[in-house]
Design a binder for these strands. Sequence first.
DNA 1: TTTGGAAACTTAACAGTGTTAAGTATATTT
DNA 2: AAATATACTTAACACTGTTAAGTTTCCAAA
Lengths: 205, 205
Amino acid sequence: MGINERKEREKELLQKSILTAAREVFLEKGFDQTSIRSIAQRIEYSPTTIYLYFKDKDAILFALHSEGFQLLGSKLEVLYTVENPYERLKAMGRIYLQFAADHPDYYDLMFVQKSPLSNLEDDELWKEGATSFDGLKLTVQQCMDEGYLPFKDAEAGAYFVWSALHGMCNLYDRGRCKVLDPEKSEKIVDLGFEELIRMMDSFRK
Amino acid sequence: MGINERKEREKELLQKSILTAAREVFLEKGFDQTSIRSIAQRIEYSPTTIYLYFKDKDAILFALHSEGFQLLGSKLEVLYTVENPYERLKAMGRIYLQFAADHPDYYDLMFVQKSPLSNLEDDELWKEGATSFDGLKLTVQQCMDEGYLPFKDAEAGAYFVWSALHGMCNLYDRGRCKVLDPEKSEKIVDLGFEELIRMMDSFRK
DNA sequence: TTTGGAAACTTAACAGTGTTAAGTATATTT
DNA sequence: AAATATACTTAACACTGTTAAGTTTCCAAA
């Protein structure tokens, strides 16, 4: 009998529409304004219904965070065509910064907010982050192998590069670039990235 | 008549005790748990009294944020004795990282949370941040002058260095180091800093 | 010394948050 | 037709920042 299957489909549909509503509210109103009640209102269900489909608010945020990683992943796909690891690393950085600028809310969810990750157990792997980081680590390792970078450890080197990019995005997003010459502060992320490249370039050239 | 002066003193006293209570709650329970009501309870006044001494919650957070800068500033004082700018820069970095590790809550307030800075007008200078950044910028400029660093622009260079340090602290604090080898993740901030130094060293040596 | 008024502080409330226990209506099975 | 399982809602709890209105306290002038 197809009744159970229809019900199953309907349940999945509602779960998806909750997620869609959450995404809409999140992208329109931002992280702070994304409340269970505002999501519920959008799908015209009571707030408590949401708890029948998601464990808690963090579970919804985790799902959105995963969407963000999918989006970033899709942007990074073009890198497969870049054979030179150092060129690939630089392109990776540009795409990362562009993503952070284009989707600051997703970025925050992926790399700053603690709540989405509260979904993970203490010993559980953060799959989304690990996949992205492994890609970076591999590229850094290749750069080291081919003498482009002076790092001692590829993992620490990759973490350093990631930190530099993340730091620039986060300081900008959190209004800490007020300390800069106002004229520069608009394009400071790009200027900072240029200095990183200059620094990396200076090793070999 | 000294009555008005006594009242003035009493007002100042209460303002200070609010701040003390806020600091205690903040350091004991953390940012999220620092509510107006919890502060009020500690000084045994009603929550609304706090609004007679501070415009809003952000004004209290701003005051605590300033305390954090004073604390960091006191740690950075020893740098005056370091004449070589490159050595000074490296020492600066170590102190900065140590501060972030020792006082994660203050650090968050100073460099991550948006709320404390909401106190500032749009065109108003972020004095605390600017003072610290100017110190860094000056040192970076001196490093450039003496051929230690390949940056083109001292401001962008200083921003890059700051971002690298901040990124490491923030990614660690926000649980994003789960992507790393668990064995390394504990000391990853130090390992990353070593790679930054290796990278800077590689320019001249 | 009593009255007037200002200053200091509190009570009660508003509008919001995440979350849960209990209740209701619907649909399926016995 | 009655019993049961499913889906959903209502009402509530314990919080949050903030404000309007009310109360108490204290000092100064009549």
